[in-house]
Simulated scan of single mutants.
Amino acid sequence: MTEYYGAIEAGGTKFNCAICDPSGAIVQQTRIATTTPDETLESVVQWFSQQRQRGVLMGLGIASFGPLDLNPSSARYGWITNTPKPHWSDTPLLPKLASALNVPVVIDTDVNGAALAEATLGAGKNQQVVIYITVGTGVGGGVVINGAPLHGTVHPEIGHMLVPGHPQLKGQCPFHANCVEGFASGTAMGKIWGQPAETLPDDHIAWELEALILAQLCHNLMLNFSPNTIVIGGGVMAKPGLLTNVIAQTRISLNDYLVLPSNKSFEDIIVAPQLGQNSGLLGAFLLAKQSNLQLGE
Rank of each mutant, 00 (worst) to 15 (best):
A75G: 15
D69W: 11
Y77P: 04
F65T: 00
K85D: 01
S73Y: 07
A75W: 00
L93D: 05
S99G: 02
T81E: 12
P72N: 00
P92L: 08
T91Y: 01
P86Y: 04
D69S: 11
P95H: 02
A100D: 05
D69G: 12
W79Q: 11
P104D: 01
A100N: 06
D69T: 10
A75K: 11
K96E: 04
P67H: 08
K96T: 13
A75Y: 02
S73Q: 14
I80K: 05
L93K: 13
D90V: 06
P67C: 13
W79T: 05
P67F: 13
V103R: 14
V106H: 14
P67S: 12
L68V: 08
Y77I: 00
W79L: 02
K96A: 08
L97M: 07
L94V: 03
G66M: 00
I80Q: 03
V105A: 06
Y77G: 05
F65A: 05
A100C: 09
S99L: 04
P84Y: 01
S99Q: 09
N71H: 10
S89Q: 15
A98D: 02
S89K: 15
S74L: 09
N82A: 14
P86W: 01
N71V: 12
P67L: 12
K96Q: 13
F65N: 05
L97W: 04
S74I: 10
W88H: 07
S74R: 11
S89M: 13
Y77N: 07
P95R: 06
T83L: 07
H87W: 07
L70E: 11
P104R: 04
V105G: 03
H87C: 09
P86V: 05
D90F: 12
Y77K: 08
P104T: 06
V106Y: 13
W79G: 10
G78L: 03
S74P: 06
L97K: 04
W88A: 02
A75M: 06
A100G: 05
K96I: 09
A100R: 09
W79D: 12
V105I: 12
K85T: 09
Y77F: 15
D90C: 08
S73F: 08
P95L: 04
P72D: 02
P67I: 11
P86M: 04
S64I: 00
L101A: 08
V103S: 14
P72A: 03
P72F: 06
G78K: 06
L70M: 09
T81C: 13
L97E: 01
P84K: 08
D69Y: 11
S73L: 15
A100P: 01
S64P: 01
S64Q: 02
Y77S: 04
L97Q: 03
P95Y: 02
